[in-house]
Amino acid sequence: MKITEQQIESLYKFTRQHYVEHYDLQTELVDHLANDIESFWEENPNLSFIEARNLAFKKFGVFGFMDVVDNKLKAMNKRYAKLLWDFGKEWFALPKIVITLIIFIVFLMCFSSQYGSYFIYGVTGGIAIYSLVKFIVLKRKLKIKRIKTGRIWLLEDLIFNAVAMNVFFLIIHIRPSLEIMESAGVISWSSIGFALFFTLASIYSYISLNVLPEESEKLLNQVYPEYKMV
């Protein structure tokens, strides 16, 4: 006995009800459950779909899909970090390293001036505002896409959540940063430290806010072979 199209749809719904939010993982689990259900039917054709499904689900243990979901997130985070690194290292090799050095020198000059602390506020605020605007624009774009396709992909979620993380990160750091700057004096090691920090933060923000969201379609196609099939 084979599983019907309708039953496959019901398995997708079942995974969603058990906190598997992302389509890529849902697809793999649906195939697994379907295989197991069909194997149960071979042994006992009188089993109902629900009974066979529950038996298959039971094999995942008391926490159901939770372990699989948690570990998939960890694995994908690793992959996301690798993507960031792959795009990031371009900024430390020719020709982009020239831009990195220019950003660093400009920050160093600004933070070493008597208005250093104002520049810290300015740069942090600037990145935070830009991130917020970007967040709203990208979130809307993503929402429209999700309504249209009805699917959420884990990597896509990470790419767009990183925008929210960026805003959060800057907001919680703005005040402590200023306090350190004020207590450290105007020209000191801290100016170099801040210049380095904000250079890296600018590059990180640019990659996570612009490059990865713009490249997301291409990246999703690379990571998920099924992306263009659905």
Binding site: F60, D67, V68, N71
Partner: peptide, 9 residues
């Protein structure tokens, strides 16, 4: 199943 998929991923 709870060990296989995390290992594969």
């Amino acid at each position: 199943e709870g060990a296989l998929y995390p290992a594969l991923h």
